[in-house]
């Protein structure tokens, strides 16, 4: 894993987020990396999977532990709207009801280009500020 990448905590109980984790292995220079057990060291989180009671409690706990900008990416149809299963649930609670979602990524599974675009859109401003900081340090030296 490289330097200067955004670390995103991934929470899931379904199939599309493991697929994303797998496809990260075969790509160089993506703008984010995934962490599976340390939300306190991550600046955002990817949520996927149908939200049952345990999942709802755990993503709220993980969201409180995040540091920095606290981005939330709702990844895939299950977490956004329940998808096919959502029709049969009487008390459907989606991720938009309990967390402030930064980007919705529809699709089953969402394309890898979609999450790359979403993350790099958000980090462009950040890269600008880093570049300015570099200029400042250079002037000071």
């Amino acid at each position: 894993m490289g330097w200067g990448k955004i670390r995103l905590f991934s929470y899931t109980n379904n199939c599309c987020v493991p697929q994303l984790e797998r496809s990260l292995l075969f790509k160089n220079e993506t703008c984010f990396e995934l962490s599976f057990n340390s939300p306190e060291k991550s600046s955002g989180m990817i949520v996927g999977g149908f939200l049952n009671q345990v999942a709802r409690r755990e993503i709220i706990e993980a969201f409180e532990l995040l540091k920095g900008p606290k981005w939330v990416f709702a990844y895939g149809t299950c977490v956004i709207s329940g998808g096919v299963l959502g029709q049969f649930s009487d008390s459907l609670i989606t991720v938009g009801d309990i967390l402030p979602v930064t980007r919705f990524l529809p699709g089953c599974p969402p394309s890898f280009d979609a999450i790359q675009t979403a993350v790099s859109d958000l980090t462009e401003g950040r890269r600008e500020s880093v570049r300015e900081k570099g200029v400042l340090y250079a002037l000071r030296d």
């Binding site: 990416f73 979602v101 930064t102 919705f104 990524l105 699709g107 969402p110």
Partner: peptide, 12 residues
């Protein structure tokens, strides 16, 4: 074409 991501309130 793949589906583009959007913010809350975008036209889905």
């Amino acid at each position: 074409e793949w589906q583009v991501p959007g913010v809350n309130g975008a036209s889905f």
